[in-house]
Design a protein around this nucleic acid. Structure first.
Length: 860
RNA sequence: GCCCAGGUGGCGGAAUGGUAGACGCUGAGGACUUAAAAUCCUUUGUCUGAAAAGACGUGCGGGUUCAAGUCCCGCCUUGGGCACCA
């Protein structure tokens, strides 16, 4: 069981040899039937781009691989899979440019990625490889969509959506950053289009609550919390003077209700026309026209210059009867709360700015409550004062603290029935359709209303028990169409073959041009589909939108458990065993996209019983930091600082690359790549080699015995490496192994020590470890060898160094027996001239002894 | 503007309140070599000093403590996130 007769550390020979061997012997195949404890370690699977593997990929993959191999060595049945998130724009743009079908391009990229990843020697179960673009996979992505549809969580809507003219597609809220597309940084605009939307808001509260029980980086949890944006408050109805009309506003600050000096409606608010008085009509219409013309970037611009217009009407504050003007302003969003606000300029920065600009009265009703600010000479806070405080000018509520006042005022509002408690979320429903070719087709058929009604009435339709309570419908050219699910037997619904991938300017998907695929006939009793009209069948049109790239990644971690399952999205027995990943690693950039969408789908699948083991998909999450270029900037082609992993592997080998990426710094930190730095770990591996192999390429004969120092060093190293792996502190684990090798080189080591050290090194640098392991005559994979344990009694040295301090400053050091008592140590200290010299004639008033470390004399 | 995480030698980074700078890179000197590469050894925070040694030193200013990179208060600064969400 030996790789080669290579004399020197020839990784070119060693690494491919073991990679092939692991693959062929399925060394890292996970067993779905096992009495062993399971460990499921998951990487965020890559998008196989045409650029090939990036140097950042192996960072997370190596970290997860170290854990996988470490768990194997601890007797776990480990699942460490890999796959491809392969739908997406670049493959399609490549197709547009070359005419080559996107699947060709995708398969080429996958092949390259697989080769590159395999060249790094990860302990992956390649029999479980998945590809989101394969029909066997998207069959179940489509199946999940049908379940969402059935449960009323997928619906169509033609509210304004983000449209990107450059990408010719709509984008989800999460994909728009500062008015630009997340992908490509192209401008986006608002456009009314008929779109599929998933009701993620139905899960808003549970998505928030679920965060409490999972072990995630705080910053990521905070981002999701902020994105969900739950707030508690009240909606309050303001009657409009001289109208039979009330305007409802949402507020989180009912304690400021006495400070309301105006209302503001969003320009799109439904009451705008009714409250606008005739003399203000012209100006208001003009204002609204302008507001509509403004791009969202302008409207939410950084300058935030307030604009607005008076409607001419007044509302009545229901609490104190004050008459307050009703304004229109585009700083109020129609899509949040009620689309109208009560403005309290004294205690809200935005209202304050608005009031100042339009000379509206500002009425202070809250006083700061800190002792410092309530002193006699206190002249009042700088307005706006937005924190909690004590109420003034608020009638019966004067003197109450904000928190209590909120509650009391809400109660009064409820009793007098002009309002109610309310909880609002910033989270919006997930815009789920894309006008693109290279995505999962949405498995929906559109039939005419008459056919739909007749089928339902006859109660024989195949879809009766697969429909949402509310019919999903839309009208086009005077005809109403209803959505029905494709029969499950028709899944997977494959993309039509076409040679025009280019989307159109009007938001129509390229699929709409594949007429053969688009216009079909369906048997409403059986769900069968045909291209030819048949007796009793009805004409139907397929949905032409496709799913967004996030769809496939919402449930891939389940598919790995049983990648070939044909009856379920995941084999229930496999799911019961593997549950969910024990460890999930990937970039922080997915904090609110993938990681929120996947949690949503997981909760849904749990609710409908498709899975049963866990309510949360990712119980422990970790983000690896970004690796920057040599120059400290983010790697990019334009900066010319991109490091190619293939070149590193060719020059130093995979083990060096793995080791170096782990040695760079803390896993979570952003850190610059230094091309010189890899020399250090490469030298280290060469030293390891020569510790085991002599200059003729023969395995060395080891020492008869370890020196006591080596015994201690080995045990310290086992302890440190084990603990550091558990804590994901790989950089310091490697440092400790370097210290070990240095000591081993000097003193020589016993064979058993040589064996143990290889095991520690194996998760980090598996190829060289496996090679040397084989040369030591072992005949099974090193990853399956039981992880070494340390002997705690051998960690302590016989002699310890005690630091002598005077007033906390280091003045001397002494070497004493580890068993020495404080008295004995003090006695030795008083014999040290250097130490005594710093004390001189002064009196010692205190002595501090830190066992095994420090003796500190405190003098006057 | 708001929220979060950082700031330690020439560089990447180590340090349960207890010797700051582990480990690695770089630089300097040396050994081996005809030479180079590789390897090995010594050295490498700043200042003063021939040396012994001493003083200073973890973004800045205070504080707590026998003892502070670490804890507390204020500020500066870098990175990330959110940003009219009422």
């Amino acid at each position: 069981m030996m790789a080669s007769g290579c004399k020197n550390y020839d990784f070119h020979q060693i690494e491919p040899f073991w990679q092939e061997r692991w693959l062929k012997e399925k060394t890292f195949g996970a067993k779905n039937e096992s009495h062993e404890k399971k460990y499921y370690v998951l990487d965020m699977f890559p998008y196989p781009s045409g650029a090939g593997l990036h140097i950042g990929h192996p960072e997370g993959y190596t970290a997860s691989d170290i854990l996988a191999r470490y768990r194997w060595a601890n007797g776990f049945n480990v699942l460490h899979p890999m796959g491809w998130d392969a739908f997406g724009l670049p493959a399609e743009q490549h197709a547009i440019a070359t005419g080559q079908h996107p699947s060709m391009n995708t398969q080429n990229n996958i092949r390259r990625f697989r080769e590159q990843i395999q060249s790094l020697g990860f302990a992956i179960d390649w029999d479980r490889e998945i590809d989101t673009t394969s029909p066997q996979y998207f069959h179940w992505t489509q199946w999940i969509f049908l379940q969402l549809f059935k449960h009323g969580l997928a619906y169509v809507d033609d509210q304004p959506v983000w449209w990107c003219p450059e990408l010719k597609s709509v984008l989800a809220n999460e994909e728009v950053v500062n008015g630009l597309s997340e992908r490509g940084n192209f401008p986006v605009e608002r456009k009314n289009l008929r779109q599929w939307v998933l009701k993620i808001t139905y899960y808003a509260d549970r998505l928030l609550q679920g965060l409490k029980d999972i072990d995630w980086p705080d910053s990521t949890k905070r981002q999701q919390i902020a994105w969900i944006g739950r707030s508690e408050g009240a909606t309050i109805d303001f009657p409009v003077a001289n109208h039979d009309l009330k305007i409802s506003v949402y507020t989180t600050r009912p304690d400021t209700l006495y400070g309301v000096t105006f209302l503001v409606l969003a320009p799109e608010h439904e009451c705008v026309e009714r409250v606008t008085t005739p003399e203000n009509q012209t100006k208001v219409s003009e204002y609204i026209r302008n507001a509509k013309r403004k791009s969202d970037l302008e409207r939410t611009d950084l300058a935030k210059d307030k604009s607005g217009i008076f409607t001419g009407s007044f509302a009545i504050n229901p609490l104190n009867g004050e008459s307050i003007p009703i304004w229109i302003g585009d700083y109020v969003l129609v899509s949040y709360g009620t689309g109208a606000i009560m403005a309290v300029p004294a205690h809200d920065a935005r209202d304050f700015e608005f009031a100042q600009k339009f000379a509206i009265p500002i009425k202070q009703v809250i006083l700061p409550q800190t002792a410092e600010q309530t002193q006699e000479n206190f002249s009042g806070p700088t307005l706006p004062f937005c924190a909690d405080g004590i109420l003034i000018h608020s009638g019966e509520f004067d003197g109450l603290a904000s928190e209590e006042a909120k509650e009391k005022i809400i109660q009064k509002v409820i009793t007098r029935s002009f309002g109610r408690r309310a909880i609002k979320y910033k989270l919006r429903d997930w815009l789920f359709s894309r006008q693109r070719y290279w995505g999962e087709p949405i498995p929906i058929l559109w039939i005419e209303r008459a056919d739909y009604d007749r089928a339902l009435k006859e109660r024989k339709a195949y879809f009766v028990d697969k429909m949402p309570k509310e019919t999903v419908a839309y009208s086009k050219n005077g005809t109403e169409y209803c959505a029905i699910p494709l029969h499950e037997a028709q899944l997977p619904l494959k993309l039509p073959e076409t040679n025009t991938y280019l989307p159109s300017d009007d938001g129509e998907s390229p699929l709409a041009r594949a007429k053969q695929w688009l216009n079909i006939f369906v048997n409403l009793s059986t769900g069968e589909i045909s291209n030819e009209a048949q007796e009793g069948w009805v004409a139907a049109m397929r949905e032409t939108n496709t799913m967004p790239q996030w769809a496939g990644s919402c449930w891939y971690y389940l598919r790995y458990m049983s990648p070939n399952e044909t009856k379920h999205l995941v084999d229930p027995r496999a799911e019961a065993y593997w549950k969910s990943p024990d460890f999930y690693i990937g970039g922080a950039e997915h904090a609110v996209l993938h990681l929120l969408y996947a949690r949503f789908w997981h909760l849904f699948l749990y609710d409908i019983g498709a899975i049963s083991a866990e309510k949360e998909p990712f119980c422990k999450l970790f983000h690896q930091g970004i690796i920057l270029g040599n120059d400290g900037h983010k790697m990019s082609k334009s900066c010319g600082n991109v490091i190619n992993p293939d070149e590193i592997v060719a020059q130093y080998g995979a083990d060096s690359l793995r080791l170096y990426e782990m040695f760079l710094g803390p896993l979570e930190a952003m850190k610059p790549w230094k091309s010189k730095g890899i020399e250090g770990v490469y030298r280290f591996l060469k030293k390891v080699w020569s510790l085991y192999i002599d200059e003729f390429g023969k395995t060395r004969t080891f020492s008869e015995n370890n020196t006591p120092a080596i015994d201690r060093l080995l045990n310290t190293t086992i302890k440190k490496v084990t603990e550091d792996i558990e804590a994901l502190q790989f950089n310091t684990a490697i440092a400790q192994m370097m210290i070990f090798v240095h000591g081993a080189q000097k003193d020589g080591i016993h064979r058993s020590t040589a064996v143990a050290f290889l095991q520690l090194l194996a998760p980090f640098a598996p190829h060289i470890s496996e090679e040397l392991w084989a040369r030591l005559g072992e005949n099974f994979p090193i990853a399956k060898a039981k992880w070494p344990t340390y002997d705690a009694s051998k960690l302590a040295a016989h002699n310890v160094k005690i630091i002598l301090q005077v007033n906390g400053k280091v003045r001397d050091e002494i070497l004493v027996d580890a068993q020495a008592t404080p008295e004995e140590i003090e006695k030795i200290a008083w014999q040290r001239e250097r130490f005594i010299a710093f004390i001189g004639q002064r009196r010692v008033i205190k002595k501090v002894y830190v066992p095994g470390k420090i003796f500190n004399a405190v003098i006057q």
